[in-house]
């Protein structure tokens, strides 16, 4: 046996040994710790404005039971902030400086370096080359599925913190008097806390009663952003609005799998 084949055999033996050790008891821990999380969370649906529990409603873990993914939330927040930029900044170009547009020197014969006009970007007090005009679009792109997951992750986070209060019916007061809003905040210990309502439809009394509440926001279900969900200390959402979000930002169906599996039909 040459030295080389001996070395190769030794290498083989070592790798075989490594693989067999993998298949022995080392991975047993991994199999033993395998578990699947609950498919549903038991959400409490509440009355309004008492916020007393009325009933339990199982809600899919894809909506309220997702683990926190800070990377996805961050991407969504950046995406929203980019899209919200107006882009109104005006930058002066070479023609906007108020200088003469005339060439400063003749091209040849002066004995000096070549010069263009007074506003040329090459001059220290010249205009900006390729300056952005107002109306510049700073928006960036994000895959729909990532944004949808961000919405669901944000809802899950607030739910897991105990800050998501789901109202079974309509989140509206019987009166639009400002005392209704004040009383609601003080009764539930929300004074000084930021509270956001996500409503299914316009709630006149809720709006009127909370106009003077500095830290109360009312958001319609269509306009909900990830930041709206993440920012408030208490998020009060109507059950219909929650269903709307679940539908609008639903997880990708298994039917859209990359390599489709045959669908079992009850033939």
């Amino acid at each position: 046996m040459s030295m080389r084949t001996w070395g190769q055999n030794l290498l083989k033996a070592v790798t075989n040994n490594a693989v067999s050790s993998l298949t022995s008891k080392r991975f047993i821990n991994i199999a033993a710790r395998k578990a699947t999380p609950a498919n549903y969370v038991l959400a409490t649906y509440r009355a309004f404005p008492s916020l007393e529990p009325i009933r339990f409603q199982p809600v899919s873990k894809d909506l309220l039971g997702l683990p926190v993914r800070r990377d996805i939330l961050w991407q969504a927040a950046v995406y929203e902030r980019d899209a919200a930029r107006v882009g109104s900044r005006e930058i002066l170009g070479r023609g906007d400086m108020g200088y003469s547009k005339k060439k400063l020197l003749p091209q040849k014969g002066s004995g000096k370096a070549r010069q263009g006009d007074r506003g040329s970007p090459i001059r220290h007090d010249g205009g900006r080359a390729f300056g952005r005009a107002p109306g510049h679009d700073y928006s960036t792109e994000l895959p729909k599925q990532v944004y949808a997951k961000a919405i669901r992750t944000a809802l899950s986070y607030q739910y897991q913190q105990g800050h998501l209060l789901i109202v079974d019916d309509v989140a509206d007061f019987v009166t639009g008097h400002e005392n209704a809003g004040k009383l609601f905040m003080s009764e539930h210990g929300l004074v000084g806390k930021s509270v956001t309502f996500i409503v299914d439809n316009f709630r006149n009394n809720l709006n009127d009663a909370t106009v003077k509440q500095r830290r109360v926001e009312i958001v319609s279900k269509e306009g909900v952003t990830v930041q709206d969900i993440l920012k408030p200390q208490r998020l009060i959402i109507e059950s219909r609005a929650l269903m709307y979000l679940a539908q609008e930002y639903q997880p990708v169906s298994a039917l859209n799998a990359i390599s489709p599996k045959p669908i079992e039909t009850a033939a």
Partner: peptide, 28 residues
């Protein structure tokens, strides 16, 4: 209408107009 959709819709509109990724839905 504006007051009602104070945060949501205004923000969403810029969001939708610029990205045209999300479906345009009438509020309410």
């Amino acid at each position: 209408k504006c007051r009602h959709h104070s945060t949501g819709t205004l923000r969403a509109m810029t969001h939708i107009q610029k990205s045209s990724q999300l479906p345009h839905v009438e509020p309410g």
